[in-house]
Design a protein around this nucleic acid. Structure first.
Lengths: 336, 336
DNA sequence: CTTGTTTACTTAATCGATTAACCTAATTAT
DNA sequence: ATAATTAGGTTAATCGATTAAGTAAACAAG
């Protein structure tokens, strides 16, 4: 490895001067800076992140936490899209990404300890159990953190606009003439609560009454579970004309159940999903859904985290809500 | 942060002894080791990875490269599954994961430089352009590397068994009575070549002739492209009875095209995919496909890489072929 | 009783980069 | 002309952990 000492020898300056030149210190002559940098380039010098981290405490390394009990992790398209954009933005700004977990090999360390172990400058908590004491401890620590879809007091958070997303969908199907709208939601997380509340509120504002049996709980991302709930809805004396699914993948389960019963989408029943995964656009008919702007969420998370890291003095916690867009597919029919 | 010096002060030994005790050196009394470790535990000590990396050159950090020109990266389920399993196995063995890219912020560095910059102990090249000089340079460097689905000379590689996978599928549909089998493949990579050659060889062994117009090139993971090729196949004077798709996602495009033309799967035409993504199992009918064992591939990659890192003297390059399994869905009909 | 060998530590150098403190020569101010 | 300042460096300490080399005490062997 080419070190700063090699450069010092090669161009006849002291290591201190070389270091300062490379960092553009004001007390090194401009020509000297040029000469030293040229020399560094020729030798193929690159700083050693470990040495720098040790000395200055800055590693230019961000931790990310994607931990979910089910272990699916990044195989969810929503999360992999978020991750890709965190990574892209971080790299653009000169930061690497390390995954933070609990328990590395035989040593047991919690998230905060792991973060310190790797001298991460900050952490994006993209998916986690926010009641886990280890997550709370991290959120309350001095280490800069940004959370996604959850807000810690006085910390930066990036939120997907579930309220408006659901409202948009409700008004869209209302506009198409639907009044009997069923809502299959996922497990009761804070995100689910927002979506459900927004659904109910929008319906109320539009003056439509949703009977309680139209509101059903399924499991996110589980087509079997949404298939069962779909069947239950179809068995009701008064069937809904439109079914909301917890997410696009869950729609597949509903779609299968409808197909099995010989029910056509959208001519006989309308459906909408949530997320806007790639699949939703290649199905025929295309699924009408709300596309969360995962790319923007990830990029904002990285950007704000790095801002907090680099300007701790002028930094203020922010809660940013990122809007998505309605993807108008062909699964919602006009009814009169 | 609790350092080794804090422990030394707290329990009255020198820093050297503390370090040796924590690493279980033979020249420290057993009771001393116990006392020091107890003290470390009480103070909540965790080593500083940067300091250790600087001194011993080992970072307990693995680099991974998932770079594809299209930028989809981990949103491919195959790759995200591989990544998840690399990560899980690495963590089990005490290693963290860092993504290696080119161009961090304003500094431009190639893969090898980036790897050195982060003092990664080794690198898994999971997806990359293997003709890229920067990738070749890394593969030829002294740094331990493991590649997936590509073999560098005298290096460890984990290969998905494309030959057997394709052979299994061909024999399966042959067993169902199919003789007119069309093959839509993806862009011509080394993986595609293996699959195509295996397809042709198995057909030949079974004594079936595949007319050249049955073999068509599409774009991996692009339902539009596979839809077009499906249409072209349907326009042939003699239609195939079964269509092979480059991957499960591409099948969606074919499925849509078939549906639009009012052709039922599998009663009128049979189909098979490749990959075994989650989606293939929740579609009705379930897609018959070959599931690549991405979990095992990722875990083996991590395991062998760490073996090379930890036992460089006894290490030998290995090429491991990981078999997948036939997922028998309902898209291939018996014909007589 | 002297010398050699173990045992169980400690001292000090080191990894690569940064930076406070210091130095010298040149320039400016008085 | 002398003092004060500035420009442009250098020296040396430091971050935390490791480890070769050194040391003192305990013990064994001749």
């Amino acid at each position: 490895m080419v070190t700063i000492t090699d450069i010092a020898k090669a161009c006849g300056y002291s290591r201190a001067t070389v270091s300062k030149a490379l960092n553009g210190a004001p007390d090194v002559k401009k020509e000297t800076i040029e000469r030293i940098r040229e020399c560094a380039r020729e030798l193929g010098y690159h700083p050693n992140a470990a040495a720098r981290a040790l000395k200055v405490g800055r590693s230019y390394n961000l931790g990310v936490i994607f931990s979910d009990s089910t272990g699916v992790g990044l195989t969810h398209e929503y999360f992999s899209r978020i991750f890709e954009s965190i990574k892209a933005e971080a790299e653009r700004l000169g930061y690497d990404i390390t995954f933070i977990s609990q328990n590395l090999g035989t040593m047991s360390m919690d998230y905060l300890e792991h973060t310190r172990y790797r001298s991460c400058d900050g952490v994006v908590i993209a998916s986690a159990d926010f009641h886990d004491p280890a997550i709370i401890r991290l959120g309350e620590s001095k280490i800069p953190t940004v959370t996604l879809d959850y807000t810690f007091d006085s910390r930066t958070a990036i939120l997907s606009d579930n309220i408006r997303g659901m409202d948009t969908l409700v008004r869209y199907v209302y506009g198409k003439g639907h009044r009997r709208i069923a809502f299959i939601h996922g497990e009761m997380t804070s995100v689910t609560q927002k979506r459900l509340a927004s659904f109910k509120k929008s319906c109320m504002e539009l003056g439509i009454r949703i009977p309680p049996e139209y509101i059903r709980e399924a499991v996110y991302h589980d087509p079997r579970s949404s298939g069962l709930e779909t069947r239950a809805l179809l068995e009701l004396p008064e069937q809904p004309t439109c079914i909301f699914y917890p997410d696009d993948f869950s729609y597949i389960g509903g779609m299968n159940e409808l197909e099995r019963q010989g029910i056509q989408v959208p001519s006989q029943i309308s459906t909408v999903g949530y997320d806007g995964i790639h699949l939703s656009e290649v199905l025929r008919p295309r699924l009408t859904t709300y596309r969360q702007n995962a790319e923007r969420m990830g990029a904002e998370a990285a950007r704000l985290l790095i801002e907090e890291i680099e300007h701790p003095d002028t930094w203020l916690p922010q809660q940013i809500t990122v809007e998505g867009t309605l993807l108008e597919g062909g699964t919602v029919a006009d009814i009169d």
